[in-house]
Amino acid sequence: MKSSNWITIIAAIIIGIGIGLTYGWVINPVVYTDVTPDALRADYRADYVLMVAEAYQGEQDSETAARRIAMIGSESPDLIVTSSLDYAIANNFSQNEILLLQGLLTAMQTYQPQPVNAP
């Protein structure tokens, strides 16, 4: 085979790769419909933690709050609340919302998970 033919074939492969990448990344990318909460955008995470804080204000149940927070990340609950509190302060959340988050943070910093008894 002539060298010009090889060049043509290699060019065709490169063009094919380009078309494949364009189709796979732009035209029809992988669609995520069942994502886990740890992939939530920062503002949604902060709002979720704020919801937990609002609920905690009424319920005063640290265990339930910790379980709800654990849904959005594998870090410890107090770290997640700290991160959300930082976001809230940086994004001008209201004073009451910041107070709620601070209350939840205090609860999570002092929360001790109940040991699970082996059967």
Binding site: I15, G16, G20, T22, Y32, T33, T36, L40, R41
Partner: peptide, 27 residues
């Protein structure tokens, strides 16, 4: 062949990853 390689890379090896998902995408 190129198309297959491109799709394999973009769908399997390095797919678009969502790090800024919204709640509607949750399981």
């Amino acid at each position: 062949t190129g198309l297959g390689l491109g799709l394999a890379y973009s769908w399997l090896l390095s797919p678009v990853t969502y790090v800024d998902a919204n709640p509607a995408m949750l399981r």
